[in-house]
């Protein structure tokens, strides 16, 4: 029973993780840019939900709808204005660029919101669902369902819509896509925008479950890394599998080794995966 409960906790967590990683993985796969800002975007989305609820009573689920377009625009503009200038530069430079931007954003948040952890507590609370002895907090359950729905929407967008197919085409073969009339620069910006959107939209969901602080940015970023490597780079199903896998591993790891070793455990997993199965658990890349 206990292990079933742990498994359920892990899957709920994993659904959220999938949502964290999907956008990060998309940007990495398509632009070959690691967006270090991703973690801070998530935190910023969390603050947006926190203040929207505390000041105006806007429910976090509704905040997602506010966050999505805002973050898309932010990502689109950032890519168009700054990141695109370095898109073909060596890894070290693109990495340094987003790192520098992240230092600015997280420092800015530290000044604006302080390092104190803030907790978004729904009033009245949604209660706990009891499924044959397995207790599931309803807010977590809703957050997970929404997270998976968001991730699923991204998948649908990529596999069905015209712009989505163009993104996939650019990922597979940029030159060929350009020859076929795809505006690669615009696709890059849209992709970066989508990545930011996914981060910003998962912020409100996480805010309902975890306390928010600018210091959490790197933690979420680290999880996104691990999930990408677990599930394989640049695919939504990969992010889904990787997210769920990490959620379950963290839950059981906390049980067996103690919660303080969660980071060590997931990073050890990361290094082992990189060394022995760099294509990820699914063993393939792309959206096919």
């Amino acid at each position: 029973m206990l292990s079933l409960q742990i498994l359920a906790n892990g899957l709920v967590l994993g659904g959220l993780y999938a949502c964290i990683a999907a956008g990060f993985s998309l940007v990495w796969g398509v632009l070959n840019v690691i967006n270090i800002l991703h973690g801070s975007f998530i935190v910023l989305g969390g603050y947006l939900a926190y203040y929207a609820y505390a000041q105006f009573g806007i429910h976090p689920f509704v905040s997602i709808l506010i966050a999505a377009p805002l973050f898309f625009a932010l990502g689109y503009i950032l890519q168009r204005s700054l990141i695109n200038r370095m898109i073909a530069a060596p890894v070290l430079l693109t990495l340094s660029l987003t790192f520098g931007l992240d230092l600015m954003l997280s420092n800015g948040m530290l000044v604006a919101f302080t390092a104190d952890f803030k907790k978004l507590t729904l009033d009245p609370p949604l209660g706990v669902l009891n499924l044959g002895g397995i207790a599931l907090p309803v807010d977590r359950l809703f957050a997970m369902v929404l997270a998976l729905a968001l991730t699923g929407l991204l998948y649908l967008l990529l596999s069905r819509s015209r712009i989505g197919r163009a993104i996939v085409a650019v990922r597979m073969d940029r030159e060929a896509a350009a020859l076929m009339g795809v505006n690669v620069k615009r696709i890059y910006a849209v992709t970066f925008g989508l990545g930011a959107l996914m981060a910003g939209a998962s912020g409100p969901l996480l805010a309902m479950i975890f306390p928010i602080s600018p210091l959490s940015g790197p933690v979420y970023l680290g999880k996104a890394f691990v999930i990408c490597v677990l599930g394989g780079l640049g695919s939504v199903p990969g992010a889904m599998i990787g997210g769920l896998a990490l959620g379950v591993v963290e839950s059981f790891g906390a049980l067996w080794f103690g919660p303080e070793h969660a980071i060590t455990l997931s990073f050890t997993l990361l290094i082992l995966m990189l060394l022995f199965r760099p294509t990820g658990l699914l063993g393939r890349t792309g959206y096919a």
């Binding site: 890894v91 303080e260 990073f267 990361l270 290094i271 990189l274």
Partner: peptide, 28 residues
């Protein structure tokens, strides 16, 4: 011997993570 088989972003990340793991180990 382990990490230098990786290239580009993968090497960068793996090398970045090492400090985090060491910090946790020293912490415990």
């Amino acid at each position: 011997l382990a990490l230098l088989r990786l290239r580009g972003h993968y090497f960068a990340i793996a090398s970045l993570v090492v400090a985090e793991v060491l910090r946790e180990l020293v912490n415990s």
